[in-house]
């Protein structure tokens, strides 16, 4: 059995910032879910996740991604785009995911493959609801996440 995880990150108190967590919640509410894919609501945590992210075959990070696209535009980053992404220090949040992954590199336990599934936020204002632009695309983001798992032969027979 391989070891895989879908990690939703972001702050659910800041509207679209929490979209990654919302995707994980949607996946967790499905009728069945395979044992070899852990669902992690990472929130805004950092080093506390080190254990859960060790020696993964596949890590799918779901987060909001700011790239100047129209709000609600989904984006999937794979392969070369991922390390570039983390190397450029993506947020002022210094003990965030980038540092957790760097620590895993240091101990030789980094995920074999990391994929980022994201969506362009409309608003990061205070509030526990997604904006309509992002909320409407949530099912699509869930499907994109499932698609990444299916492409790698995970989820076979598990999704109804």
């Amino acid at each position: 059995m391989t070891r895989n995880a879908v990690l939703g990150i972001g702050n659910i108190l800041l509207s679209d910032e929490g979209v990654g967590v919302r995707v994980v919640e949607a996946l967790a509410s499905r009728a069945s879910w395979p044992d070899d894919i852990e669902l992690i609501d990472g929130g805004t945590c950092g080093m506390e996740m080190l254990d859960q992210l060790e020696e993964l075959d596949l890590l799918v990070v779901v987060d909001c991604v700011r790239g100047g696209r129209p709000p609600g535009t989904p984006v999937v980053l794979r392969g070369e785009a991922v390390p570039v992404f983390f190397r450029t220090k993506l947020s002022p949040h210094q003990i965030g995911l980038a540092d957790v992954l760097a620590s895993l590199e240091l101990t030789g336990r980094a995920p074999r493959e990391t994929v980022i599934v994201g969506i362009e936020p409309e608003s990061l204002a205070l509030g526990m609801e997604l904006t309509p632009a992002v909320g409407a695309r949530l099912p699509e983001l869930v499907d994109l996440t499932l698609g990444e798992l299916e492409r790698r032969g995970l989820l076979v027979g598990a999704v109804g």
Binding site: I9, G10, N11, L14, E17, T44, D63, C64, V65, R66, G67, G68, V84, F85, T88, K89, L90, S91, P92, H93, G96, L97, I116, G118, P121, L124
Partner: peptide, 14 residues
Amino acid sequence: CAVHVVDEEQRPVV
């Protein structure tokens, strides 16, 4: 406070 947005634009944060 902890805003956590991944920023694709490559810019120095510090």
